[in-house]
Amino acid sequence: MTNAGCVRPLTTISDRDLLLRDLLMFHVVHQVHGPFQRFEGLKTLGVLGAVKKLPDSFRSWFCHEPQRLTADMMDDLFTPRLAPKGSNRRRAEDAVIPLCKDYLQDAEDEEGSSKLQNILVFATGSNEIRPVGFSPAPSIEFIHEGSEESSSKQMFPMASSCINCLKLPLITSYEAFKESMDPGI
C-alpha cells in the first residue's frame, strides 16, 4: 500500500472505501500512465495514427504470438560452426549437416512441433523462439575425436544451453544418427 502512496489511516468504513479507490487509481491509472505516454513518441511520422487505423496490421509488432515450430524454422535458427574448408574435420561435419536437416524434418513429420520443441529446450533452455531472439545466437558444433567432449564411446548429442549450442556427434548413417539423437535429447 505504501508503494501506491496510500498511507491513509483506517478509522471508519468510509476510510476503507477511500483507500480502495486510491489503490485502484494507482494500479489502473497511474501505473499504466508511463507506458501509455511512451506511445506518444509514435506520433512522429504518423505511426500512431496508422496503428490506430489499422491495429491488426501492427499486432505482430506489438504483441507476441507464439508460433508453431517447424523444421525450417529450426534449421534457420541454428548456425553451424564449421571447420576450415578442405580440412578433414570439415568433410566430416559436411556429412552430418544433411542428416541433421533430415532429422528435423522427420521430427516434425512424426510428432509435430512437440519434438522440435524438445530439441530447442535441450539446446537453449527455451521452449519457444523468443520474440527478441537469442543471445548468443543458437549454433551447432561437432564433437570430434580428441576434443574435450569426446570419449571413445561418445555417440550422443550434447548441449550447452548457456551459449545456446547443440553439439552433434560425427555419425555418417542416418539411422545411427537418429538412434543417437532420440535418446540423447
Results as ranks from 00 to 15, higher is better:
residue 1 M to W: 02
residue 3 N to G: 12
residue 3 N to E: 15
residue 4 A to L: 13
residue 5 G to K: 07
residue 7 V to N: 12
residue 8 R to D: 07
residue 11 T to C: 08
residue 11 T to P: 00
residue 13 I to P: 00
residue 14 S to Y: 04
residue 14 S to Q: 14
residue 15 D to F: 03
residue 16 R to Y: 07
residue 17 D to W: 13
residue 18 L to A: 10
residue 19 L to N: 02
residue 20 L to W: 01
residue 23 L to G: 01
residue 23 L to C: 07
residue 24 L to A: 12
residue 24 L to H: 10
residue 25 M to F: 08
residue 26 F to S: 03
residue 28 V to A: 13
residue 30 H to N: 12
residue 34 G to M: 09
residue 34 G to K: 11
residue 34 G to N: 10
residue 36 F to D: 03
residue 37 Q to M: 13
residue 39 F to P: 00
residue 39 F to N: 07
residue 42 L to Y: 15
residue 44 T to A: 14
residue 44 T to L: 12
residue 46 G to N: 11
residue 47 V to D: 01
residue 48 L to E: 11
residue 48 L to P: 03
residue 48 L to Q: 14
residue 51 V to Y: 04
residue 51 V to F: 08
residue 53 K to V: 14
residue 56 D to Q: 14
residue 56 D to H: 09
residue 59 R to K: 12
residue 59 R to W: 01
residue 61 W to C: 14
residue 62 F to P: 03
residue 63 C to M: 11
residue 65 E to G: 05
residue 67 Q to P: 01
residue 67 Q to V: 15
residue 68 R to Y: 09
residue 68 R to N: 07
residue 69 L to Y: 02
residue 69 L to H: 03
residue 71 A to D: 06
residue 72 D to E: 14
residue 74 M to R: 01
residue 75 D to L: 11
residue 78 F to N: 00
residue 78 F to I: 01
residue 78 F to E: 00
residue 79 T to H: 13
residue 79 T to Y: 10
residue 82 L to E: 08
residue 83 A to H: 02
residue 83 A to K: 04
residue 83 A to R: 04
residue 84 P to S: 09
residue 84 P to G: 05
residue 85 K to W: 03
residue 89 R to N: 06
residue 90 R to S: 04
residue 90 R to N: 09
residue 91 R to T: 09
residue 92 A to C: 04
residue 94 D to S: 12
residue 95 A to S: 07
residue 95 A to C: 06
residue 96 V to C: 06
residue 96 V to G: 01
residue 98 P to K: 07
residue 98 P to S: 08
residue 101 K to Y: 14
residue 102 D to H: 12
residue 102 D to G: 05
residue 103 Y to F: 14
residue 107 A to V: 05
residue 109 D to T: 13
residue 110 E to Y: 11
residue 111 E to R: 12
residue 111 E to S: 15
residue 113 S to N: 10
residue 114 S to Q: 14
residue 115 K to Y: 08
residue 115 K to E: 12
residue 116 L to T: 03
residue 122 F to E: 07
residue 134 F to S: 04
residue 134 F to A: 06
residue 135 S to N: 15
residue 135 S to H: 13
residue 135 S to D: 13
residue 136 P to N: 08
residue 138 P to G: 07
residue 141 E to T: 11
residue 141 E to Q: 13
residue 145 E to I: 01
residue 145 E to Q: 10
residue 146 G to L: 08
residue 146 G to C: 08
residue 147 S to L: 04
residue 147 S to M: 05
residue 147 S to R: 03
residue 148 E to Q: 13
residue 148 E to D: 10
residue 149 E to M: 14
residue 149 E to P: 03
residue 150 S to M: 01
residue 150 S to F: 06
residue 151 S to R: 15
residue 151 S to N: 10
residue 154 Q to G: 04
residue 159 A to L: 03
residue 159 A to R: 00
residue 160 S to V: 01
residue 161 S to L: 04
residue 162 C to H: 07
residue 163 I to K: 00
residue 165 C to K: 08
residue 167 K to A: 09
residue 169 P to A: 06
residue 169 P to L: 02
residue 169 P to E: 05
residue 170 L to M: 07
residue 171 I to A: 02
residue 171 I to Y: 00
residue 175 E to Q: 15
residue 176 A to V: 02
residue 177 F to D: 00
residue 177 F to I: 06
residue 179 E to K: 15
residue 179 E to F: 03
residue 180 S to F: 01
residue 181 M to C: 06
residue 181 M to R: 00
residue 182 D to T: 11
residue 183 P to F: 05
residue 183 P to S: 06
residue 184 G to D: 08
